[in-house]
């Protein structure tokens, strides 16, 4: 392995280790100085708003894009010079369905099997159809499947060669909650067996199912760690204020939004989440409203969503 041993914990335990990745399209930096490590056997959530550079980063990891600068390894192989080796060990599921629409389910799976050198591609495809619950649809053209089944097929195709690393780009977009839960149960079972999964998503509940998460906005990695670590690192102080009178809350939202020391106000049913980065300033702002009888103030913990919205608005101030 030609890659420098950049991690302390040893290359064996690390599936992805990249440093200072930068990618520019037409003079616009899409990914800036991004470093991240993903341990083997973990489910790593990749979060961030649209156009934040998630897809670009995933494509750099699997050799579909060449970084302008930076180094790194994926499964111990150099992402700049050993992309062919990386490709034979990963499964990449694209954001947009990108199998052959004019091939049937079975033909698509057999094609993948042959490319990866599976000994009996027809048998492997048959087994995959069985496992994925696609029986009865194997001769249907991929283009004629509904969205949920297309997603199922795409997953089946990228897991068919039993890769060591799965790169999933928004795999559950537009999938119903039941299928989403099945998917996550399965991902956890796979990770327990040692498979590493990098999954990008917009959903907060999915982020909370990951072992670790990274939040990326405007091409920059803004936070990473376990969910608890990310929340703690945000240094957000949060209060929940509730009231029985919804009109009171609506008026309060406007007032609090412009109050100094309060950075975020978000309605959640019959209550508001009020957060601030500076604890003292927030306390001072809240103190003015504490006396009002119709309001019930409680200190609470910032949610992951609070943290991300805050990170995003901070990043926006810095970059735009």
């Amino acid at each position: 392995m030609s890659a420098p041993a950049v991690s302390q914990s040893g290359a064996e335990d690390i599936a992805i280790d990249v440093r200072h990745l930068t990618k520019t399209f037409d003079g616009r930096a899409v990914v800036r100085d991004l470093s991240m490590q993903v341990k083997r056997g973990t489910i790593y959530g990749f979060l961030g708003p649209n156009g934040s550079g998630k897809t670009t980063t995933i494509r750099m990891l699997c050799g579909l894009l060449t970084p302008d600068s930076g180094t790194g390894t994926c499964l111990g192989y150099d992402i700049l010079t050993e992309t062919e080796k990386i490709k034979s060990q990963i499964g990449y599921m694209t954001q947009r369905f990108s199998l052959y629409q004019d091939l049937s389910v079975r033909e698509n799976l057999e094609f993948v099997g042959r490319i990866y050198g599976i000994e009996k591609p027809a048998a492997a495809a048959r087994a995959a159809i069985e496992r994925l619950g696609l029986s009865g649809r194997e001769d249907q053209l991929a283009g004629e499947l509904s969205g949920g089944w297309k997603q199922r097929l795409a997953l089946g195709a990228c897991t068919l060669p039993s890769p060591q690393l799965l790169l999933l780009d928004e795999p559950t977009a537009g999938v119903d909650p039941k299928a989403r839960r099945d998917f996550w149960n399965e991902i956890h079972a796979l990770a327990a067996d040692g498979l590493t999964v990098l999954v990008s998503t917009h959903y907060m509940d999915e982020a909370e199912r990951c072992h670790e998460i990274a939040y990326i906005a405007y091409g920059e990695l803004l936070a990473r760690g376990t969910v608890a670590e990310v929340i703690a690192a945000s240094h957000l102080t949060t209060y929940t204020v509730s009231s029985n009178d919804s009109s009171v809350l609506a008026r309060l939202t406007d007032e609090l939004s412009s109050a100094p020391g309060i950075d975020m106000v978000a309605p959640f049913g019959a209550s508001l989440h009020v957060s601030g980065r500076d604890k003292d300033a927030l306390e001072a702002a809240v103190a003015l409203y504490r006396g009002r009888k119709e309001l019930d103030w409680k200190p609470s913990e910032a949610s992951l969503e609070d943290v991300f919205i805050d990170l995003m608005s901070k990043a926006k101030d810095n970059f735009q």
Partner: peptide, 20 residues
């Protein structure tokens, strides 16, 4: 629940496999 990956990994052929 459906399963994504077989319990036993399918066997792969050795080598480059150019013509394959």
């Amino acid at each position: 629940m459906t399963k994504l990956i077989p319990d036993e990994a399918p066997r792969r052929r050795e080598g480059r496999g150019f013509w394959r």
